[in-house]
Design a protein around this nucleic acid. Sequence first.
RNA 1: GGAGGGAUGGCCGAGUGGACGAAGGCGCACGACUCGAAAUCGUGUGUCCGAUUUAUCGGAUCGGGGGUUCGAAUCCCUCUCCCUCCGCCA
Length: 418
Amino acid sequence: MLEIAFVRENIELVKKAIKNKGESVDITSLLEFDTQRRGLIQKRDEKRRERKEISRRIGELKREGRNTNAEENKAGKIAEEIKRIDKKLSEIEKNLYEILMQIPNVPHPSVPVKGDKIIIREWGKKREFDFEPLSYLDLANAISLLDLKRGVKVASSSFPSYKGDGARLERALINFMLDTHTSRGYTEVFTPFLVNRESMFGTGQLPKLEEDMYRIEKDDFFLNPTAEVPITNLHKNETIPGKKLPIKYVGYTACFRREAGSYGRETKGLIRVHQFNKVELVKFVLPDSSYNELETLLQDAEIILKLLEIPYRVKLLPVNDMSFASAKTYDIEVWAPVLKRWLEVSSISNFEDFQARRANIRFRDGKISGYVHTLNGSGLALPRLFIALLENYEQKDGSVRIPDKLVPYMGKEMIDKR
RNA sequence: GGAGGGAUGGCCGAGUGGACGAAGGCGCACGACUCGAAAUCGUGUGUCCGAUUUAUCGGAUCGGGGGUUCGAAUCCCUCUCCCUCCGCCA
């Protein structure tokens, strides 16, 4: 959420952000409501002041045992007027906030408006095969790492089920990533998989993306779509002492997405699924430092791929590809050499104070106070990492070599052909 | 699931219709004292909204929302959360 005063004072900037992010918001009405609101507040506060004064006098007179009918009459009329203004005001405010909520975050000046994504860097060497390689899916089927058909029986399609060394590899990757990040200064958290409406609102998934979320109607809970939601909301409605910042969390969660509107795309295999695992990095930082923290957050996610020796590239997203709440976003994509595709495994964003204002997360640093800046990024999402690992490490004989750094977690150096 | 008790400033805690934005204490900041520190004494100490000549002024704020009243921390309704006991339970 942006501040109404900011919108008022930066109309052109805000309009540009709305347009470039592909949103449509009625700014004219917003500004009209804003003017009306401020006028009504002034009127109401003046009336309240009058009432306060008379009520105080009534108290004094009563203590002296004197009649107060005339004063009570007058105060009653003022009270009625206040009630009338209040009613009008709350209508206006409701309208105003409804529109204000629809305004996306304003991008950082360094972000290009649209066009091709800018490739910041590419790491590692794309693999060339001297044999006929299997795609990750054929390979996983051949050596029974996945049991997608039976997963369908349990839930529905795109709820993958892992098996044997596949299940073990998934678990090994999660533990490897958690350990790597905690050894580099992140505090591990393990949070609920269900989140309430307020939390979804706080990080900006609602109201826009409600259709993409699984919802438990009876209790009005949502299934966690990304650990960004539970982890960021850990500090909802808090004022954090400046000396405790930055706060850096890493957490594993299962993630659930309905992927409404993407039927028929990527329905096979692991590329787009309704349930997946993810290790997430979340930072709460002082406003001054958030763009430096974005760069180090990116590096912290990249380190996983360097350690696993999987080629990847980093892209800066243009405004039209950025999420609603983000001010600047990098994507990390891994190279799947058999599919011959880049697959997104992480999206790393600085939200500045956009989420903090919604979730009411402040800081106080001596005399300076304000909203913290929040950042997050996957570190990393599992399914596509799983794909890239298989394709980058499959052997001619149909076995899969385990990357050196992952061996202690996997407990073996090879997943053998069966 | 049943019964009862709670929620007050950064923290603890008093306050059952008017002089209460809220006693007292702790903490914190500044000052005095001191060679320095501790102790002591003094002063100050939140947040939000609006106006502004940006020094200030007005309003709101006692878990959230609604109501009664000229006037609510205080009375009523409702929701949320916490605690205690009972029941159930991996």
